[in-house]
Design a protein around this nucleic acid. Structure first.
Lengths: 233, 233
DNA sequence: TAAATACATATTGTATTCAATTTGGATTCG
DNA sequence: CGAATCCAAATTGAATACAATATGTATTTA
């Protein structure tokens, strides 16, 4: 295994670890440990750090090492503001530009995703969903949109890992709905129907949002104390 | 001067060189020359390269050194598609979130910009305009939007340097219009009028676009050959 | 006992050295 | 004469060695 391969392996490992919150937001990385683990000297390891910092996976702090990118309340708000717009634009462009071989790959990704719904862990589900959306980004192929889109996907995955817990049946059915929406997206893209693709992006987004909101603001417990409510009007 | 300072100096130098097309799109950089010029070893120089690659200023090519980021016909099209949307969103958020000290800085930047209109070179004008818009990006302060916004600004500057030539009076008046629009933006931001800010973003963009279109598709020469036209319907 | 300072250790940043690719040119073969 | 191949020089990538900075702990002092 060449040095170049070990380097890309490290890069992939770190990306995945961040996406799945295996590296929690803000968690410190151990440079020398990764050197040993991936059989690399510090130089290439630090190069990978800088790359992933640029892509939004890691935060490089002057003289204080590297962390998994932070995920604060503020960023959560930013996320809700930017996601629908960027996501809509990406799907619209995807429908306009997709090549047939990309559509084929998207279908495979969707198959994999459905598989993880039946038998996969939360981690596998998150990664499969991420792969699906990455392909729609490739289809859109707009170098000015992709940087933001990719950052959104990183935190979409992490927010999902944080807030989604398959405790209720309600949630399980939500996830199944989202898979159906993926199918609709494929159909819209294949039909070059960019209007419909954009609408589906909104719908898909609304579902994710709803899922997260339900976790952040759960229904009030049925306590016998009168006017207790956790839900703002 | 410490090594850290020399490193940031290199970074700033390269950014500016790319923005002003002092480094033309696709132009190769000489690693060792920059090492000597900025009194740094290759390691920190290469780290800067990776950072600027992540930010869209440079392109790092596996085993083939570094270039100023490419600017192809394809990217130009991508640019026209993405810019109005992202730009509109940024100004809308800027109007919603701007702090007073940021507004003060924006006014200073605008002063400087007007100064360059009177007495500056194309390079100075481009950099001053860039600074103005960078501050609006700071005001928007949305980490998911900024990566794309910054990439757009890079190529906005470079497209301007490429296609704008102050040969005609028409163009000169266009530039003056754009400065007036800056003033309107400041007013809208100060009034927290995000609707108007977004509208101004569109208008500002339309002006830039018009300027570029006029250069790419000039009015047909008045040749005596009948139905000759350079303009598509 | 609490705070502050100084020192030791660990971690990060930079320089230098060594290895592996790539590139350009010359030579040979079709 | 053109194309392909092989070799040398130059450039890029990785590893090691060295320097600077930051962190944590212990000791001292108020």
């Amino acid at each position: 295994m060449s040095a170049k391969d070990r380097k890309t392996a490290l890069s992939e490992h770190l990306k995945q670890a961040v996406l799945t919150c295996d590296l929690a937001p803000g968690q410190d990385l151990d440079e020398v440990a990764l050197c040993e683990q991936f059989q690399l000297s510090r130089t290439p390891v630090r190069e990978v750090f800088r790359e992933l910092d640029g892509e939004g996976y890691l935060n490089l702090r002057e003289g204080r090492g590297v962390r998994a990118a932070e995920l604060s309340h503020t960023t959560l708000r930013d996320f809700f503001l930017a996601a629908p717009m960027v996501y809509g634009a990406v799907l619209r462009l995807a429908a306009a530009n997709a090549h047939s071989h990309q559509i084929a790959r998207l279908k495979v990704a969707q198959e994999t995703y459905r598989q993880t719904l039946r038998s996969g862990s939360a981690t596998e589900r998150t990664l499969a969903n991420n792969t699906f959306h990455l392909i729609t980004g490739e289809m859109a192929a707009n170098i000015y949109l992709l940087p933001s889109f990719h950052r959104l996907l990183i935190d979409h995955a992490r927010i999902g890992m944080t807030f989604y817990r398959p405790t209720s049946n309600e949630m399980a059915s939500n996830v199944s709905d989202s898979a159906d929406q993926h199918d609709d997206m494929i159909a819209a893209i294949e039909a070059r129907d960019d209007q419909r693709a954009a609408a589906l992006a909104d719908a898909h987004w609304a579902l994710s949002r709803e899922q997260i909101e339900r976790f952040v603001m759960p229904a009030a417990l049925d306590v016998p104390l009168g006017s207790m409510s956790t839900r703002a009007s």
